[in-house]
């Protein structure tokens, strides 16, 4: 664009990160999966990790993450991304290895893999998208679905007498001695998105410093399967999800605090 005024110059305030490919995502309009991926890409750019990172995509709406990041990628079986990441990290300890997993993948079918990766203090970073639903298969109840929330497999609303309460993964993982950095953030407004990015940055720094297991849980939206507009979905996160999935730093090991990030 041509500079319209004399004695001024143009500053690029924001541009698409290089760690994203030019591919158009398959996400529904307004889905904050895209925000979290963009944040990861921005952090990879800023830390100069694009060419030494290896990503592990999971199963669910996150399955095509490998198409969107311009870094080496593999695609794991459902829930097994932390195991696959372990295999890669152990033979290439100097690479930055991260998984990108949703709540069905990580908190249901992949519970064992993520808990044990944390238990081992595996030096990997996990970006965990919690949108309280199975998005890719069309909106079934997830282990994170809120009580009373209607899904296609809980059509009358989640009955906690039958299905129990949602699983709070950040809290759970924070209890593992092997985890170094476990926090929950939200993507429902610009302020929280900035905080989420800072957490993602810290998580990758933790890995860079060899401090062990890091996970950032991100409260995310699913407008389509929640049957809300994108902006209504943001309000749902703020008003309904955050009261149950409280934001916060659940585990920040002393060594991580010492980084003074």
């Amino acid at each position: 664009m041509i500079n319209p005024l004399p004695n001024t110059h143009t500053q690029v305030v924001y541009q698409r990160p290089k760690s994203l490919t030019t591919a158009v995502t398959h996400y529904c309009p307004g889905c904050t999966h895209g925000v979290s991926q963009r944040l990861v890409a921005e952090v990879l750019d800023e830390m100069g990790l694009r060419e030494k990172a290896i990503g592990v995509a999971s199963v669910g709406c996150s399955v095509f993450a490998y198409n969107y990041f311009d870094v080496d990628f593999v695609e794991a079986a459902h829930g097994r991304a932390p195991a696959m990441a372990t295999g890669i990290k152990r033979v290439f300890p100097d690479r930055t290895v991260f998984t990108y997993q949703g709540d069905g993948d990580l908190a249901s079918i992949g519970m064992a893999e993520v808990m044990h990766a944390a238990a081992r203090g595996e030096n990997i970073t996990i970006i965990f998208i919690n949108n309280a639903i199975y998005g890719m298969t069309g909106g079934q109840m997830a282990p994170t679905t809120l009580p009373g929330m209607k899904t296609t497999s809980s059509p009358l609303g989640r009955d906690i007498e039958m299905t129990g309460m949602p699983i709070r993964m950040a809290e759970l993982l924070s209890k593992m001695d092997g985890s170094s950095f476990v926090v929950r953030r939200s993507l429902h407004d610009a302020t929280n998105i900035r905080k989420a990015k800072k957490a993602i940055r810290t998580a990758f720094e933790v890995q860079q410093q060899g401090l062990g297991f890091s996970l950032v849980e991100l409260l995310s939206t699913c407008p389509t399967n929640w049957d809300l507009t994108p902006n209504e979905a943001l309000s749902f996160v703020e008003e309904k999800m955050i009261p149950y999935f409280e934001l916060g730093d659940y585990k920040v090991a002393d060594a991580v605090k010492a980084l003074k990030l």
Binding site: V56, V74, A76, A77, R80, A83, M84, A85, T86, G87, I88, R90, V91, F92, E113
Partner: peptide, 9 residues
């Protein structure tokens, strides 16, 4: 699945 990851390298 760890084998799978390592095999990819």
């Amino acid at each position: 699945n760890m084998v799978y990851g390592a095999a990819c390298t």
